[in-house]
Design a protein around this nucleic acid. Structure first.
Lengths: 152, 152
DNA sequence: GTGCATGCAAAGGCTTTGCATACCA
DNA sequence: TGGTATGCAAAGCCTTTGCATGCAC
């Protein structure tokens, strides 16, 4: 017989385990925010996550969303992205392969990609400088196929 | 005989030409901020640039620094950097070769580097996706040699 | 029952904007 | 002289924090 936890997915397990370890509590809000976040599939800002969560349950506060996002980031469920537009974007991270982004500066769409050769070279470069990499960000900015036709 | 403009360097020429083209004015403040910026040699935040400029001339305002930085970015004299710490850093750009950064998350020092192979691969990847790159950012985060010894 | 979590609102950083005055061209 | 630039302060964003109350454990 399946347990309730398994039905809710591995993310739920990771999150509740993290909370337990830190002697934090699993509240209805935290659960709701996590679910909403996972259901979104893709980048989302704190603001948007707040909106979507609130659609389901009226009494969710801004602050709680921010606080919960911090926790989710801490336990590896979410990853912070900075596309340089002044707001932090979050994306689901667990079990996802690392990847980088190509961002269209006109329409805002993005393409995710992973290039093993680049990853390899990043390691090499850091070793040459005696640097110990823990993470990296790479964003390519430009125009997507559509926008290349549309403008100019 | 050298002209005054030449003595002040190419950046000065670029800036004053840009201002002329846009029918903007070359004011004492803009000159001061540009000089201060160039003299700094390295990354600097708007806040720091404001401080340093003010040391030389008491009456320089925050807003003017921000406004001038925007202009300098527009005409290619400065480049915006986002190290993910919530504030924009600026660095001199003119005649500087493009480069990326390795940032120590403990002490904040950074190493600049350029890896032609990575640049090449970035172009390749974008072409594969029909994407037209105009710029990119790449930051490697981790620990520098010193900090690896200091802390775990 | 105890202590963390919540929601609200207020405060915090950084950046931009509005406005009357000052100054370049 | 006319229109931009400036400095100041206030407003704007996004995010964090303080506090009394509520709720998980």
């Amino acid at each position: 017989m399946k347990t309730e936890k398994k039905e809710k997915g591995r993310e739920y397990e990771v999150f509740s385990q993290y909370l337990k370890d830190k002697e934090l509590k699993l509240t209805a809000q935290r659960e709701l925010i996590l679910e909403t976040f996972l259901k979104h599939h893709g980048h989302i800002s704190a603001e948007e996550l707040f909106q979507k969560s609130r659609e389901k349950q009226a009494h969710v506060g801004f602050a709680t969303v921010y606080r919960t996002l911090k926790h989710m980031t801490q336990c590896g469920l979410a990853r912070e992205l900075d596309f340089g537009d002044g707001r932090i974007q979050y994306e689901p991270e667990l079990d996802r392969q690392h990847h980088d982004h190509m961002i269209c500066t006109q329409c805002g769409t993005y393409i995710e990609f992973l290039n093993p050769q680049i990853e390899e070279l990043q390691d090499q470069v850091s070793k040459q400088h005696g640097f110990k990499i823990t993470s990296h960000r790479m964003q390519l900015y430009g125009l997507c196929q559509k926008c290349q036709k549309t403008k100019k």
